[in-house]
Simulated scan of single mutants.
Amino acid sequence: MRFGILSPVVFRPPGQFNAWETSAGTAELVTVAEAADRLGYHHLTCSEHVGVPTRIAARGGGTYWDPLATLGFLAARTTNIRLATHVLVLGYHHPLDIAKRYGTLDRLSGGRVVLGLGVGSLKEEFALLGADFDGRGAAADDAIRALRAAWGQPVPEYEGTHYRFRDFLIDPHSPRPRVPLWIGGYTRRSLRRAVELGDAWVPFGLSPEQITTMLATVDPPEGFDVILTPPPLDPMADADGTRRHVEKMHAAGATMMNIVLRHRSVDHCVEQLAAFRQLFAEAEWSVPHEQVGTG
């Protein structure tokens, strides 16, 4: 089992963030990221929305730091921890845009980028950006295939149903020929998409029982990850409860987890990260990352 963190401060959904995060900023975010890096957590995250309709933000949260800017900044302040988009909305980007921008980040960070990708569900945001909402599923499938073909290639070539390109130089690009693709979603189609085109499934809005049932319908390839999120945990005050929640996620099929911790301040957050690390000392914690292609 491996553990990453849903980064505090950068995303504040109701019921999942702590009061101090409302007034927190760059310094607090860096403190948490550096601590998670030092303690051996696998990844930290940053999600994407350009603009959330106010009626939705009022009940579901509207704070989303830009993932490229945020992860680029944190890359310079960390050494080993992976930098995961959780998630990019594929319909808002051309695959070569992702390959160029996040490939550059992959080079700057020494090969630490993880691309979490999703189809998207906010119709108003699609309209705001001039993106096609109704055909987003088929376009996303083709975008993932195109991104696979383009990643790490100086002159990529691809011809699919929605995207076609050749004879364009992408420089810089990722130093790696392959990047982990984590596919988000809550439908059976998202799971099939993850198994067929990605390296992991990151479901949300599903119970452990629903996840177990859905996973029984597919035959994932070797090395495929299922990344689940337990409810907010308090390892210092409730170690037994924390273990129960983690064990329940593991029983549901998790090979990796995104954890959210309860904390009263940035210092308490760091203490909780250390307590969780100690509570699960037997887990697979990150060793120093082999830097790739930073030149």
Rank of each mutant, 00 (worst) to 15 (best):
A237S: 12
G295W: 15
L191V: 13
A76S: 15
L197D: 12
W151M: 06
P95K: 00
R145Y: 01
E196Q: 03
W65K: 12
R188S: 11
P235I: 11
H94S: 04
T161Y: 01
S109E: 08
A239V: 02
R164C: 02
R176Q: 15
T79M: 06
R243N: 07
A252V: 10
L228S: 09
R264K: 02
T242C: 13
V260T: 12
S47M: 06
G15W: 03
L115G: 13
L128Q: 08
A274Q: 13
E157N: 04
F11L: 14
L71Y: 00
H268F: 01
L233Q: 01
K123S: 04
D142F: 15
L90F: 04
T229W: 04
T85R: 10
P177E: 14
G293H: 07
A252E: 03
V246I: 08
N258Y: 04
E282P: 01
I183S: 02
V292T: 10
E284P: 04
A58D: 07
A239R: 07
H250Q: 15
P232Y: 11
A76K: 12
P232A: 15
I259N: 03
K248Y: 00
H49S: 09
S207V: 03
R244S: 09
P288Y: 11
G152Y: 04
D132V: 14
A254I: 04
T22S: 09
H289V: 08
G135Q: 07
H289K: 08
P288S: 13
P177V: 10
F126C: 08
D167N: 11
F276P: 05
W285H: 13
A139C: 08
H250R: 15
G184T: 01
R277F: 08
Y64T: 04
S109Y: 10
G60H: 15
C46I: 12
E28D: 15
P235K: 13
I259A: 00
P53A: 09
S174V: 01
V50W: 09
